[in-house]
Design a binder for these strands. Structure first.
Length: 99
DNA sequence: CTTTTGATTGTTGCC
DNA sequence: GGCAACAATCAAAAG
């Protein structure tokens, strides 16, 4: 029951508790984001009839089929962006502390 | 301290 | 321009 049920995710942006982070920095991309950038076209070629929803579903299916080593390059990119996000986090924390 | 969840990232296609 | 499933990620709030 902690999964979907009401699909209460960022899509709604309900902010039930309200925005805690005054100036929350944009977090790093996930490995899947980079996977989409690289395989999005390939899946579209493999599934020319598939719409966005189908393509995304297939992409996720393929992604889950990937091994850790296969995810390595994508996770590495995600980790690289994480470094970028980490810098933003530093500034964000600094703002929270100072401001 | 542990768990949950809320927020965010990028893609394409439709309205 | 925003939102739809897809997966990940992570920081903060709640317990």
């Amino acid at each position: 029951m902690t999964s979907e049920t009401t699909k209460t995710t960022a899509k709604d942006r309900i902010r039930a508790r309200g925005k805690k982070d005054p100036r929350a920095p944009k977090r790093a991309l996930s490995a899947y984001m980079y996977y989409s950038q690289d395989h999005r076209a390939r899946v579209r070629q493999a599934n020319p009839d598939a719409s966005f929803s189908e393509t995304g579903r297939i992409l996720g299916n393929e992604w889950r089929s990937l091994s850790d080593v296969d995810r390595q390059p994508y996770v590495e990119r995600a980790a690289r962006d994480k470094s970028r996000a980490d810098a933003e986090m530093d500034a964000y924390e600094a703002r929270n502390a100072d401001d």
